[in-house]
Write a protein that binds this DNA or RNA. Structure first.
Lengths: 234, 234
DNA sequence: TGACGTTGTATCCCCATGGATATATCGCTG
DNA sequence: CAGCGATATATCCATGGGGATACAACGTCA
């Protein structure tokens, strides 16, 4: 059973929520210069597509300049508002895509001291400072592998000097290199690997080798806990 | 017009995709011990709910032990598979939630050298090493504010010593403190602010003050570019 | 042995989404 | 001034998801 993380990107603007389909609609209008052609290419009905444009404009203001008559019968071009929507959507989707692609390291633990949304969580590898939901006690802390910074243990500044509040040292157990990115696995507890994504350049600069100790740091704001009690949502 | 980032969490397991509604169903079954009561509490029809359980089990294997007859007429309890699904969903949702909450800093630029999925992007604040999609030229680079590490400029190690490949120094222009987290805004170009989320403890340790210079670093794997050409999806 | 509260199905129907179709309307161009 | 290709809008209908309902089957317990 392989579980894949999925998501769907949305932007909520006042009353409407804009999804991928809307953005594809805008793209098609932009590319073909008319809603009619856009509907054709997308295999959608013109009527619904036109309705949707009006619906969105009611909420966010003009996203198109629509002309009828004239040479070629008229046409539709996007406004800057529409382009900003497209860019914002793309940025959001890129971030969500990052979440779905990146591996995460999981550490079960219990909440100790809490201040606001932050708390220290006692785990098998030691204390982790993380974002913890309210009234959570038994938790799992997840750390995104693209948020883990690796340094040479001999030259690592004290955690006090940076805003990297979590710092752990352990032996490298696996190194997988891709075109540009290397995935490094570090053994911290008896069975608690921490993964880090770094550039190949960083990997060679650090002179990574398996079994060699390395220091992994990550920010408290990049570590998130979920709580394990089952009846939290009901 | 305020735009809010939204998302919906899903797990794709072989043939089915499990969404929030399914997880809430599992929670309710777990809490009430029977599918009937769960359906009642959720305001759903028993028939559909039961169908959905079977549907999911066809794909992922047993997620419930369902008994009929016996004292109390029977009942349903979740399997460990179901609990693992719930935990995985929660972890995924926590990460997506992080994306939607966290502010991002945006830098327009053009792609220079590329190696695999990584490329250097020339921006108003200088070169940024980031994850860049294929065949992109004009791009926007986004940096999550929870991935930005702040250090004292005088004591900052050379970027070469760490896997923090992007490093910029500029004056602090805004400091907003919450219960546990402080949001710091740093001026880099003429109109390119970079935001960072750090713990209040880190903020006081760094002795942050407005107009005072600070060094902000972030990993290449935490910077993502989108491309600006409009007809990419069609 | 019957009562009871489950699980297990099958059928009907409501309703929202969205395509299909038809009909105006508009305004430049030949 | 008619033609054309676009926008604008209303109506009908196919489809699917899911609630409502009904009825069996099951197994412990009084």
């Amino acid at each position: 059973m392989t579980i894949e993380k999925e998501y769907s990107t949305k932007l909520a603007v006042d009353e409407v929520t804009i999804d991928r389909r809307d953005i594809e609609m805008l793209d098609a209008i932009d590319q073909h210069g008319s809603m009619h052609k856009a509907a054709d290419r997308l295999g959608r009905s013109y009527a619904r597509l036109q309705n949707r444009v009006v619906e969105i404009e009611d909420a966010v203001g003009p996203i198109t300049e629509r002309k009828r008559g004239g040479s070629g019968g008229g046409g539709t071009v996007l406004t800057e508002t529409a382009n900003e929507l497209r860019r914002q959507f793309d940025r959001h989707e890129a971030e969500l895509d990052g979440v779905a692609r990146v591996t995460e390291s999981v550490f079960p633990g219990t909440v100790r001291e809490r201040t606001g949304e932050l708390a220290t969580v006692e785990t098998a590898i030691g204390s982790i400072l993380a974002l913890v939901p309210d009234d959570a006690h038994a938790v799992q802390v997840t750390v995104r592998s693209d948020a883990v910074v690796l340094t040479d243990p001999d030259e690592t500044p004290q955690a006090d000097d940076t805003s990297l509040r979590n710092q752990f040292t352990g032996p490298v157990t696996a190194i997988e290199s891709g075109d540009a990115i290397t995935r490094v696995t570090i053994q911290l507890g008896t069975d608690s690997p921490l993964q880090a994504l770094i550039t190949n350049a960083s990997a060679t600069r650090l002179g990574l080798e398996t079994d060699q100790p390395i220091t992994a740091s990550f920010k408290a704001t990049a570590a998130r806990a979920i709580h394990l009690e089952s009846d939290r949502r009901v």
